[in-house]
Structure formats: structure tokens, C-alpha cells
Amino acid sequence: MRNRNAIRALAGLAVAALAFTCSTIPASGAAAPKTVGHQSLNLDFGDFTAKAELDYPTWRKNAPVVVLIPGSSPEDLNADIPGPDGKQLSHIFLDLANSLTARGFAVMRYNKHYVTSMTQVDYQSYYTKLTLQGMLKDAGTVLTAAQNNPHVDRHRVFLYGWSEGSTVAAALAAAHPELTGIAFQGPVTQSWPSLFQWQYEMVGVPYLRQFAVNGGVGSDELKKASAGSGGLVAKEIIQLLAPQSYTGDFSIDPALDPNHDGRIDIDNELLPAIPGLIAKLVTGPLHIYAPGEALPDVSQVAPKLRMPILVLQGGNDANVPASGAATLNRNLHRDHVVRIYPGLGHTLGRTATQIGDNFQPMTAQPQADLALWLLLHS
């Protein structure tokens, strides 16, 4: 699933990794002690002061630094993802910080605008004031703070954009050609409305079919689906059909039920209605993703980026189709690597299916591949 350049690059990574490992072992053969420093920062985002953290290897001066740019929803600096019951599903930015600092890299991560922690968010401001252009400005503030930090090498700076953050990272990199490289995880490679349609039709609808009776669903079926084993993306369609489902009311939206029978036929009523429902979303609560307001997707920007590029993509990603990474692989300039991992989801955690993709903890292999790519280019 990767091109010849990628294969050669990964072969070079293995050699570079061996050389780096040998260079960090003292002549006596004993492993050098490796400790990590943590610097807490307060960044001015205008009407909000965001907490950020620089994690850096104390045993290495002027370390290369990776700036982690978060995905959609109110994410904190760990990328803590809560499930419907409030329990944490994963914290992949914390995992990446621990993995990379142990390998000699510094990592800068930050709370998104209006986010104080996983459980403390100014939701009113987040969903009414924040735009993708605002997120780009915030990421620029974070980048400047990273470049000016005395613990890092300002001439070896990488961006890492996840999901929504891939569009922010791409736009930021386009304005900063001095950057050493950029990595995308689960990149957005199409318009947001078309992406939402893909999520509903390719993940949400197949999940609903598991509970359908005579080709349709009503409140009983939606309640069962809500308690089923589908991931967060698979279950988003439930709230689309039953807007009050978060309160325990799984009644079908009357606007989707013209015959008032309390049910909706998947093929004859739901599928034809999805484009119109998405149009209402992107002109309403999700207006930041509307054409003209959203940042360009990665496929539009990436061919213009001349720095090295890494793409990490789960084959069972429920948020973005893996085909987008395959398209990037064909269209990017020569110095790029695309890794598509079968059996991994949007967080690069293990999932047997797209329907079951539920922000599982990131596996070790993508973390190792990222570290080796960073090493080769730093």
C-alpha cells in the first residue's frame, strides 16, 4: 500500500534508527539515563488563555520539536476522548508525547480554544465563536512558541495534524515553508459535506441495518442501536434521526416522518434525506465546515507543500475514508511516505471494522513509524 519511495524511505529509517541507537549508548555499553522535562505554558489566544505543554528530552540539547494539532470537537492537549458514559476512550497525543520524547524529540501540545480540560469546556463559545480560521491562528501562536523555546532546535520543527487538524496543519505549513516536515494522521481529503455524507452512508447506515425491522427503524430499534457495539461515528446517525436521543427520547424527528408512523425506511426515506440533512447542518450548527468557511482540505494544499510529508492512515477509519490517503499517495511530490494500516481506525487503534472504530488507544507500530520518519528527516 505504499510506493517505492516509501519502501526505500522506510529501509533508510531502519538504518538511521540503528545508527541513532548506537550513538546514544556510552562506550561502557550501559544505557544512558533518559529523563523528560515538562514545561507548562500559557498561550494568548485573544479572548482565551490556553494551556500548552512542551515535553522535551533533558538528555538531548536542541531537540527537534513536533507540534501536535488536534482534531475536531473540544479537545484538550492530551487528545482525551470521552465515551458516552464519560469514561476515557483514549489520549493519543499524550501517548505520542511519551513515545517521541523517549526517542529524543520534543513535543508541543495544547488545549484548543475555550477548552480547559476534557471535562471543562466553554461549549457556548466553542460552538458559536470558534472557526477553522481561528484554529489556524491559534496553531500559528503555538508554532511561534515552539520555535522560540530554548529547549528545541528552531531549525528542526515538524507539524503533526490529526483529522480536522490536518487541514489546519496543511494551511499553516503552506505559510511556513521553513518547516522541516509535516505528518498527517487520518487527513481530510474532501469537502466536509461530502465527508459527512460518507460517514452517514458508509458507517452509520450499515450500523443501523443491524437493528432494522422490515427495512426500517423506530424508537425501539434506535434505542437498541444506542446501546450496541458501534463506535461514536456509527452512532452519530442516531441523533440525526432522533435529536432528543441524548435525553433518552428516541422518537424519530417528525420532519423525517411525514406519514407519522414513528418509523423511517432506510432505503426509501433515510438515504434520500441525508444530503438535505447535511446541508442543514453545515448552514447551522456545523457552519464552520461549510464551503467558503472551511479551510481547504489536505488534497488541495498538500501538492503545494515542498517539505517532506508523512501520512498515517487507518484502513478501518470511520471518520475519513482510507481511499483519501491512497489518493494523496498518487498526488504528492517525491519526498513523501504513506502508510495505510489494515485493522486500525481513526486513532490508529485496533478495530475489526469501520462500524466498531471507537477511538481506541493508538498501537505501537504507527508511533514507531512516525519516530523513524522524524529521525530520517531531522
Rank of each mutant, 00 (worst) to 15 (best):
W192P: 03
A255Y: 09
I238N: 09
V233R: 04
S251E: 00
Q199P: 08
P258G: 12
S219K: 12
G262W: 07
G215A: 06
V203C: 01
I238F: 07
D265L: 14
M202E: 15
S191P: 00
P243N: 02
K223L: 00
D249L: 06
S251P: 00
L208T: 13
P258Y: 11
R263A: 09
T189D: 02
F196R: 11
Q239L: 12
L240I: 15
P206E: 04
S219M: 05
Q210L: 11
G230R: 08
A242I: 02
K224S: 10
S226W: 10
Q244V: 00
W192V: 10
P243F: 08
L256I: 06
S251Y: 00
Q197M: 11
G218Q: 06
A242C: 05
S219G: 02
D261E: 09
G215F: 03
V217K: 11
S245R: 03
V217I: 15
G204H: 05
A225V: 00
A242R: 01
Q197H: 14
V213S: 11
Y200V: 11
E201G: 07
Q244P: 00
A234H: 02
E236Q: 15
M202A: 15
V217W: 10
G228L: 01
Q210S: 13
Q239T: 15
G231M: 12
A234S: 09
L208Q: 11
L232T: 07
Q197F: 08
G228V: 00
D257T: 12
S245M: 07
I238E: 07
G230M: 06
Y200Q: 14
E221Y: 03
P243W: 06
S229P: 02
G216I: 04
Q239Y: 14
G230A: 06
D253I: 06
A225S: 01
D249T: 10
G216V: 05
F250S: 03
T247Q: 15
V233G: 01
G218P: 05
I264Q: 03
D265I: 13
W198L: 14
A225D: 02
G228E: 05
P243C: 04
G228W: 01
L195A: 08
A225W: 00
Y200N: 11
V213E: 12
E221D: 08
S219F: 01
G218R: 10
A227Y: 00
D249N: 15
Q210F: 03
D220N: 13
G204S: 09
L256R: 04
S191I: 00
Q239H: 13
S191R: 03
Y207H: 06
K235Y: 05
G231N: 14
G230E: 04
S194V: 07
S219Y: 01
S245P: 00
